[in-house]
């Protein structure tokens, strides 16, 4: 059996006194589309930096198809789009692609890549003169230049408007449809819900959950009770309430009890609805994070 495309075994990484990753083990197999979720500082980028050979683990092992990512050989089959858009401002779009192409044995033709990411008309433009969204798109496109087996996308659509984001998702799905594997981090939960089949939740340097989308939602074990009412009375077991238009969403571990208490309180309400939680709510419960750490995508 061939080794996994990417594998971390009991990996620990510190920055000074800060423990960024604490005995993390993770395997990514061929064809998987893994979403890596976690609040700021959870260790997502550190994990990607280890997989892409930028950093060394303090203990444990990181491998790409069984090889140390710090050897150039091991990186021949990966593509990387870093969190911070990385482009030399004075080079033209086509030149950036050609520069990256020179590093790979069998790269995509420049024209085809630019076409795929909607950049064909910008080929002669210097990257410094592009809009933020166009630069972001090019930065993500560069990850696909070398016909990678495995792509690491760190917050790929940050700063893109809805239309551009959906276009990029289509390119990502096409890559996956051709058998491509991907590890993706995102601040947009909608993005992980839309793209990832498997979700890994990272918090304070540890893996808190590693399951398919539904599994992660279930793991939180939460229900969302939505009602239309003027004022919510104090209810035991209410974890969080939020308003959306005239609707109030109440998050709880025990929906039956909450509804009973709500009825007993005598307060007037209508249109009661009980639902499974969204990934966002599950995520907040698992990591114990503040909701300010995440941006539910506005679409």
């Amino acid at each position: 059996m061939s080794p996994p495309l990417a594998q971390a075994i009991e990996v620990t990484r510190r920055y000074g006194d800060v423990l960024a990753l604490d005995r993390v083990s993770l395997e990514v197999g061929p064809g998987e589309l893994v979403g890596l979720l976690g609040p700021n500082g959870a260790g997502k980028s550190t994990l990607i930096n280890l997989f892409t050979g930028l950093r060394k683990p303090y203990s444990g092992r990181v491998m790409l198809s069984g090889l140390d990512p710090r050897t150039p050989m091991a990186r021949r089959h990966i593509g990387v789009a870093p969190q911070e858009t990385a482009l030399p401002g004075s080079l033209r779009v086509g030149e950036c692609v050609d520069f990256v192409r020179a590093h790979f044995p069998d790269p995509l033709p420049t024209g085809e890549l630019l076409e795929r990411f909607g950049l064909a008309t910008l080929r002669r433009r210097q990257t410094g003169g592009l809009s933020g969204g166009q630069r972001r798109r090019l930065s993500v496109a560069l990850a696909f230049v070398g016909r990678p087996k495995l792509v690491f996308l760190d917050e790929p659509t940050t700063g893109l408007d809805v239309g551009a984001r959906h276009e990029l998702w289509d390119a990502v799905r096409a890559f996956h449809a051709e058998g491509g594997t991907m590890l993706l981090t995102s601040h947009y939960l909608e993005e992980v819900e839309a793209l990832a089949k498997r979700v890994v939740v990272l918090g304070r340097g540890r893996i808190l959950a590693d399951d398919d989308l539904d599994g992660v939602r279930r793991m939180a074990g939460l229900r969302r009770v939505s009602v239309t009412m003027r004022a919510v009375p104090p209810l035991p077991g209410l974890l969080k309430s939020s308003a959306e238009g005239d609707r109030t969403h109440l998050l709880t571990a025990d929906a039956d009890r909450l509804v009973r208490d709500l009825v007993m309180s005598g307060a007037e309400f209508r249109d009661l609805e009980v639902r499974q939680t969204s990934l966002e709510e599950a995520f907040l419960t698992i990591t114990g994070a503040e909701s300010g750490d995440l941006v539910p995508a506005a679409s």
């Binding site: 050979g53 930028l54 150039p72 990186r75 990966i78 870093p82 790979f104």
Partner: peptide, 8 residues
Amino acid sequence: PYTRTLPA
């Protein structure tokens, strides 16, 4: 750092 993730 991006160039360091390329296979070189």
